[in-house]
Design a binder for these strands. Structure first.
Lengths: 176, 176
DNA sequence: ATATCTTATGTTATACTATTACGTGTCAAG
DNA sequence: CTTGACACGTAATAGTATAACATAAGATAT
């Protein structure tokens, strides 16, 4: 399916796959893979990936871009689900708790995780020009911060790292 | 002034001085120092640290704890300043732009910077138990992230690192 | 099978966070 | 003393998130 084998960046700047960010890949496959992984995870953990929850994940996977809760809600409403805020917030909360979606604090928005199940400390690279959001490995940064925190006796539980900046595509455009 | 020479942690868990976090110091001095530094910075940069702006900084310095814009606004109103949101938001925006205050994304809140003028990549340690917010050095984490970002061609402009966890005081209380 | 318990969803209302727009005041430069 | 830039006051509104309660759907144990 060549329509889904696209160049990420100009045509799909929001792709968040870390090893694939700003590179070409088969989008249909990556979406399918994540959904399959989500189903498997739900079974293993004995939690329910209900229609609303699954649909929210699909919606976020469609665009590979951070979406606000109300944008998600609008999509849900169109699909016949409830159109009140809690419907979206509850589904998003479930997905975040189960590591299927990440919340981008800086944008008050949500993005599908491309590595469900893999333990990872996510760092987000947010392009200020095209609003693309990429997920990058942050193990090293996490380790460095654990040292800083340890020096003052602070025990880190969850860590969020978010970088504003410019993606390679927009850098190329900006300085031609 | 011994009333201000207090033990940070139990009695003032929100103190954010990085080298002083969770340790004793003269609070009056640290507040005065920061304000003096702010005045000097404003003069050098030829910007105006007006009454509202200075008052907002003072308010944030009082508690050494992240405060929401509306909490700040309430305090301003009591002091005879305008009581509409833009009054607080504009002052906070100015202070953030000038590096005198940091915004904590995770809390939608603001905290006074204890190192105005010093170039620093702030990382915040947020205690989930007592809501204390400490500022920790993050140069190493920043360097590590620059590598990750560089690998995908992303140029980092601003970086925010926020850790949820438990401060030493609450760790001691929690496991006695 | 049915009662029961638990979990999820639908819905209403409301709280919290933030910005736009516009009028007024203030201060320094010309 | 006028002008122009900047700051402040105020009203209105936009955007984000949650509390509370009722209904429905699934699981479990008789």
């Amino acid at each position: 399916m060549s329509a889904n084998l696209h160049q990420h960046g100009p045509s799909c700047p929001g792709c968040v796959a870390p090893d694939l960010a700003f590179a070409a890949h088969d989008h249909a496959n990556c979406t399918t893979d994540v959904l399959a992984h989500a189903d498997a995870l739900a079974a293993v953990r004995n939690v329910r990936l209900t229609p609303v929850r699954r649909r929210v994940l699909e919606i976020l996977l469609e665009q590979h871009r951070a979406m606000g809760a109300y944008d998600v809600l609008e999509r849900l409403a169109r699909d016949g689900f409830g159109n009140q805020p809690p419907v979206a917030y509850r589904a998003l909360e479930f997905l975040v708790e189960n590591g299927l979606v990440h919340r981008v604090q800086r944008l008050n928005a949500y993005v599908a995780c491309m590595h469900p199940g893999e333990a990872h400390a996510p760092a987000f690279l947010i392009c200020g020009t095209c609003s693309a959001v990429a997920e990058a490995p942050a193990e090293a940064a996490r380790a460095a911060l654990d040292v800083s925190a340890g020096n003052v006796g602070f025990a880190v539980d969850r860590l969020s790292i978010e970088a504003m900046g410019t993606c390679p595509v927009c850098q190329a455009k900006g300085a031609p």
